[in-house]
């Protein structure tokens, strides 16, 4: 086993050289997790907004369930998607197991509850402020949803960010449905797990550093956007 100092040194050399293998792994990680955020946003934002403005029997139960699902263990999501996509599963004929698409499906399932639950809270607060004015404008339920989502756009970015953070950092779901196949489904987290087990700490550390840097960069970007928006007082 290498010493930690050697491992760090090797890690920085790897990052500096940014070789093709490393690039492919980082690129696939971003591709999978960003796609998952887009899918989860398309489902989660309207769902959260709908739950925020509507009142029907069973609504509270759904809100509680979605909030509880925020803490869904990734391995359980991975297992469920695995069962669905395996040859004997309901979606077996699609032959998606061990593909990046399967990883996107798993991560989308994982973070949709996070985005929906955070969006519901944001939109519900906004609706308290807006609902009488929207009634005066004669908005339909659909128009209310669109208006509230647009008015809350800067706060909702935080929800998307939380979803992205969860997706890019998780290992349990993608390793089950992706299989950690070199050059096909190997992402940063699964590589870190594998290389650590193999004792190749340099690559694992290098990827770890890149992973944390990406998280910081994405957070900074969103904060910068929010800051600009707040200075213009649109937020």
């Amino acid at each position: 086993m290498q010493s930690f100092a050697d491992a760090f040194g090797e890690a920085f050399r790897l990052i500096a050289s940014f070789d093709a293998d490393l690039r492919a792994i980082v690129f696939l990680s971003l591709q999978v997790s960003l796609s998952a955020v887009i899918v989860a946003a398309i489902i989660g934002l309207p769902l959260g907004a709908f739950l925020a403005v509507s009142r029907f029997p069973g609504r509270t139960a759904i809100v509680v369930a979605i909030t509880a699902l925020m803490g869904l263990p990734p391995v359980v999501v991975g297992l469920i998607v695995y069962l669905l996509l395996s040859n004997s599963g309901a979606l077996g004929p699609l032959q998606l197991l061990y593909t990046p698409t399967a990883m996107i499906i798993a991560q989308s399932l994982l973070i949709t509850p996070i985005i929906a639950a955070l969006a519901r809270q944001t939109i519900e607060d906004l609706n308290d402020e807006y609902h009488q004015q929207m009634t005066l404008f004669g908005l339909t339920s659909g128009q209310r949803l669109v208006t509230l989502l647009w008015e809350g756009r800067f706060s909702l970015m935080t929800a998307l960010l939380a979803g992205f953070g969860r997706a890019i950092a998780e290992v349990g779901a993608v390793i089950i449905v992706g299989g950690n196949i070199n050059h096909v489904t190997r992402v940063m987290t699964t590589t870190i797990a594998l290389e650590t087990a193999k004792g190749n700490l340099a690559l694992a550390l290098g990827l770890g550093i890149i992973l944390v840097s990406i998280a910081i960069a994405v957070n900074s970007l969103v904060f910068a956007l929010r800051g600009t928006a707040e200075r213009a007082a649109y937020a």
Binding site: E129, Y130, Q132, Q133, T135, L136, F137, G138, T140, T147, E151, A233, Y234, A235
Partner: peptide, 20 residues
Amino acid sequence: SRDGYRKVGMLLQHPVLFRR
């Protein structure tokens, strides 16, 4: 009816201005 809200206007005590 909702269709008539344009003709029956109201200025709320705390009017809501949109983030625009």
